[in-house]
């Protein structure tokens, strides 16, 4: 029989907003985002850290939210795909993914964009090799990655053309 579980009351920051959620102690950050906060832009692709679809920023670092316990995020700052567009305008990375044809089925897209966000925060002028390495943990079955890398490289140097 299922036990009646204790739930944890957690407070953290998501996309700049202070939030509090009640989750079971074993809930993942992905569970908390998708189920408790209804931020369903972050996707569950495998649940084992192999596909990158659930990538979010946790205190500035890109992580697989399916492998993070919600409990350890108390007090943390989390950014999800829903946190990028502002004032009805796409974030530059999102716009680049749209314009460069980097999106087909779109299931990998939120994770790809969050991994790109982490890359560009760290290295505003990535080379193609840097971009490939930054996205090596994000699987895509549709695009063959070329247009995704084109989108990333179109943003290098703040959008100045990259050769």
């Amino acid at each position: 029989m299922p036990q009646v579980l204790d739930t944890l009351d957690l407070a953290f920051e998501v996309n700049g907003d202070a939030v509090s959620v009640k989750v079971p102690p074993g809930a993942t950050l992905l569970d908390a985002l998708r189920d408790a906060l209804e931020l369903t832009g972050t996707k569950l692709g495998c649940g084992e850290g192999e596909c990158g679809a659930c990538s979010v920023l946790l205190d500035g670092r890109v992580v697989n939210s399916c492998l993070v316990l919600a409990a350890e995020c108390a007090g943390a700052k989390i950014v999800t795909i829903e946190g990028l567009a502002a004032n009805g305008k796409l974030h530059a990375i999102q716009q680049a993914f749209v314009d460069q044809g980097a999106i087909q089925c779109g299931f990998c897209t939120p994770g790809m964009i969050m991994a790109t966000h982490a890359l560009l925060a760290d290295n505003p002028t990535p080379s193609e090799a840097d971009a490939k390495r930054a996205l090596e943990g994000n699987l895509c079955r549709c695009t063959g990655y070329r247009k995704i890398l084109d989108a990333v490289l179109s943003l290098a140097n703040g959008g100045v053309a990259h050769d």
């Binding site: 993942t28 649940g47 084992e48 850290g49 492998l67 993070v68 316990l69 350890e72």
Partner: peptide, 25 residues
């Protein structure tokens, strides 16, 4: 004993090991 969770997490998620009653981060 729980640190990065990159090994325990997949095992728990896939139900291949019993989840522990207590996790110590």
């Amino acid at each position: 004993i729980y640190a990065g969770g990159t090994d325990l997490g997949p095992r728990w998620n896939k139900d291949v090991v019993e989840k522990p009653a207590t996790v110590i981060d």
